[in-house]
Every structure is written in C-alpha cells, then in structure tokens.
Design a binder for these strands. Structure first.
Lengths: 187, 187
DNA sequence: CGCGCGATTGAGTAATTTCAAATCTAGTGG
DNA sequence: CCACTAGATTTGAAATTACTCAATCGCGCG
C-alpha cells in the first residue's frame, strides 16, 4: 500500500517503515473524476498534491478568456499553485483533472511539521524544488529562443507519453501558440 | 564585516555568531570587473554565487548568435547555472558582469556540507529555491500571456532599479523581443 | 571635432493570429 | 450496420504583429 508515494520519496532519501508511516500521517488521499477541478481561481490554495495516478493541468485564463497552460502534471509529479500554497492565499489558476486522478495531499502546516520532525524530508523537498526550478528555467529559455516548431518537437521528445493523453489544443496552450499554428507545422 | 551575507541568511533563519562564522568557512570571496565573465559556455560550473554588490546577466547565445537573457542578478541575489552546478557539468550559458561585482561563492561540496552540518541552512536553501521556482513560473506565465508592451511594463514595475542599470537592448533580450520592437512600443 | 555605442526610425518581409468554414473521429442510439 | 452528434483538427484567407536590415539620430568622452 502507498507504494507510489514511498518509492517516490525513496528516490531521494531512505526511509524506515516507521518514518514512512509517520510521513503518511501528514497526507490525505482523494480521488477526482475526469473534468473535476481541484481548485479554481479565487480559491485559497491550502494543499500541495502528489499525483499517484491520473493527469492534471494547471492553467490560467487571460483577459480574453484564452487559456494558457502553466504545466501538466502526471503520475509521480507534485502540483499546486505553489505561490498561493506557500502564502495560503487566493490563486489565479485552475487545477483541473484531464483524467480521473488520485492524489495524496498535504497542508502547509503538514509540510512544515513533516520537515521539522523528519529532517530528511527537507532534503527531499529541496531536491524537488531545485529540480522544479531548473525545469522552469529550461522552459523559459525554450520560450525565449525557439520557434513553435522547435518547441513542439522538444515537447514530443521530452514528454512522449503526454502526446497520447492530451489534445493538440492543450499542447498548443502549453507551448504558447494557437492551435491553428500548431496544426500547420507539418504542411 | 560580511553583513550583506549574514543579513541575507537572517531574513530566513536565525544564526548565532558561531554558526555564521562556520557558514562563512564554506564560502570564498571574489571581485570581478565590469565586463568580466564568471563562467562561459563549456565551462564546468563549480560554484553558486551570492552577489554582495554589482550586477550580472546570465545569458545564452542561440544558433544565430542572438543573445537571450535568462536572468539578471543584483545585490542579494544568488546566481549560477543551477542545472550545471548541481550536476557539476558544462554550461551552455555565459555569466557576465554588467558592473563591477563582488561575490561570495560556494562549491557544491560546500553547499552539501553546510546543509548537513548546519541543518538550518536547508531551510534557507529550500526557501530560496521555492522562491526561485515561483518566480520562474511567473515569468513563464508572463511569456505565455502578455504582449511585449505588457511585459515591458511589468518589468518596469517589478524591477524599477534595473531600468537605470541595464540598456534597453538587454531588457529586450530578457523580454524576448527585438530591441527595435521595444523601441517602438511608445510611438 | 569626431568616434563609438545605444536608441530610434523607416521600409519591406516573415511569422503568427484571428475568424470562418470544412473535415475528421469516436462514441451513441436507432 | 448506419446515421448522427460533439469535439477536435485542419484548412483557407485576411489582418496583425514582430522581425530584419539599413540608415539615422543623440550623446558622452577623448
């Protein structure tokens, strides 16, 4: 039971059965259906989510009601509006399930308690945060330097599995191009 | 002595004199002149840098030799190619001094030792990493959702002091537009 | 004065968007 | 098995935006 989460922790730190059991007390589990919102604009973001199965999108609607996808999140990824989460404030994003999704979620209080009471977890969070930061920087560089076509090909290479699971319209909203332009790339 | 660094740590964690003195043993100090490179493409990135004074740009040159600025970094910021730093590998970036700059720098080994021997520092690094990650996400959203003009105005609002210190050509390379387009925004 | 660098302006071109219409696809019910 | 619908994708054409390349301007400094 809870193997996905435990394996995920143990990719970074070793945990005894007791330690993992303790960590688990800080989490709750929830299942969402396809199309459900985990949070919506103006909600206070109280939790961070570890996805044990399923697929989410974190997106933003601009003034023209056009959707922009900040990130996709699938199995073994963490997702939240981390800005709103860390400040326990209102989000401007939507976190929506593209598939039926099961998550472990933790409150900011739980996150802090866990970090203090099981200091290894700080190493774990730090590793995740660094990885996320480095990934974001790569995405920024990609947006600055590459054409839509190159960006699309990077995406296919980096996330081949996502290609099967999300529509091209969504990929376009992630890459920052219109769906029509994406459609015309190979014609 | 070393007040900038100590104050910077103490914005997040409290340190005794002894603790700070210990932390300091993991750092070295260096001064760079305007125009100096701290590292260049293909260098192994061995250090992370805390800027006590001055101004840096972290940039990338694409296949057409066009420069793209990943970030500016000024007093009380950390800078490095964190991907290359954490993996102790070759960078594809240039880190260049836009002004004469003084830094405290630390090796990956020092970073790890400091984290282990003074566990509070993990809290500090974690805080910084989270902030960096959140900031990167905001920049991604800005690149996805806003026009060059809006992006420029966001930049002016967010970093008013930088406006005085970097040329518009550099700002354009940071915002992802040509300098001519930036120049034409208000005409 | 004249050089050098950054900023601006002009003109033409290329890329992308927008809006609209047509096509394709998967699933549903008859 | 076929017809039908909803959603996604593609295509077309015009409009917009940003880029490139070249020339000019403005200013600080030797």
């Amino acid at each position: 039971m809870h193997k996905t989460l435990r394996n995920h922790f143990e990719e970074v730190i070793d945990l005894t059965d007791q330690e993992f059991a303790f960590a688990l007390t800080k989490f709750e589990i929830k299942d969402f259906g396809k199309g459900d919102f985990i949070f919506q604009r103006d909600d206070i973001v109280e939790h961070a989510y570890f996805i044990s199965s399923g697929l989410l999108k974190l997106s933003y609607f601009d003034d023209n009601a056009k959707e922009h996808i900040v990130s996709f999140a699938m199995e073994n990824w963490w997702e939240s509006d981390f800005n709103a989460f860390f400040t326990q404030s209102e989000t401007t994003y939507y976190l929506k399930c593209l598939e039926a999704t099961s998550v472990y979620y933790i409150s900011l209080e739980g996150y802090r308690e866990l970090s203090e009471e099981l200091p290894k977890m700080k190493t774990f969070w730090l590793q995740k945060s660094n990885t996320g930061f480095v990934g974001s920087q790569r995405r920024i560089l990609s947006l600055l330097t590459t054409s839509p076509k190159e960006r699309y090909e990077q995406f296919l290479k980096e996330y081949p599995s996502l290609t099967q699971r999300v529509s091209k319209t969504q990929i376009a909203a992630y890459l920052g191009v219109s769906r029509e332009t994406l459609s015309r790339l190979y014609s």
